[in-house]
Amino acid sequence: MKHLVAAVFALLAALLLGFVVLWILHVPPLDACKGMLALCWARKMDTAAKALVLCLLGTGISVAFRAGFWNVGAEGQLCVGAIAAAGIGLYVAPASLWPAPWLWTALALVAGTLAGAFWCLGPALVRAKWQVSEVVTTLMLVYVAKRLLEYLYLGPWRDPQGYGFPGSAPLSASLHVSLVWIAILTGVGAIICALLVKKTVIGFEMSVLSESRDVARYGGIHVGRCLAIVGMISGGLAGLAGAVQVTGTAGRLISGISVGDGFTAIIIACLAGRHPLGVLIVAPFWAMLKVGAEDLEVSYQIPQAFSTALEGICLLCWLTSVWIGRRWFRRFRGNLT
């Protein structure tokens, strides 16, 4: 409840600020808003796909944050997930897709998940073993993964029939997954994660670990194993998000795979109170903002980075509203006693 109020306040405050900025830039805010919504409706499939990708990323991040593991590199894990899925779809699967296309699709998704999981396992292990800050390592790996993605679609995997267009060859159409399947995957993932953090021993270990590594060690929690599990879940879901983009929406490896969704998901996880199911509520809003931002660019020449700026501002507003909430709560409790 407390989380919900803080999240709503933060969103409203950020929107208000956004309106003010638009107004300063001589863009009528309400018209812009209407345009954005219209675009979201017109491209509802894109919006839904974006929302699902953000859900997957946000769920993974909220699991990590619950264990006090600051995985801020979901973007990188998404990239390697996409690479792995595309690799399976383009170069491992035979042209005949024998024995069944869906098998190869599933394999691509699994490969993406594993790639993301291992991309995040490294930071988790070095954090467990040598207490290397995962904020730094996961972020550095974002840059590495983005360059790797770029290298592949510009270099060896570039589509020979693409007229020099930057991107890999498209995946065979029978490898595509429908949005329904992605939605099912996302929902199941979120529910499993929610059960994991709330109802299992591992979830309890995570909450002790996030509080203090010392207490965890004292209580006999295997810190390395716990961090490894958390890292693999978090990275795996991000990798799956990447694979889903390749097999579901983009259909190939292009620069549009990595547009900062991994960072947006950090805000989503925070606003959702680090609850995997809360993510499902918050993510669609940001998906609409991100898709709608394209309308701002087309109609009013406002660059799309507007939505990125709004994300950051929303996070700052959220911190402030959590603080205000705490103060009010304290005053309220003070009156009671």
């Binding site: 904020v135 406002i302 990125t308 700026a309 929303c314 996070l315 911190l319 402030t320």
Partner: peptide, 25 residues
């Protein structure tokens, strides 16, 4: 007294976003 990691990430996103959004204009 906000969490410094979250505050920093927010600042980073907001400011890089603002630069990328205001710059071209």
């Amino acid at each position: 007294g906000a969490d410094q990691i979250v505050a920093g990430l927010g600042m980073s996103l907001a400011a890089t976003g603002a630069a990328a959004f205001l710059g071209p204009m």
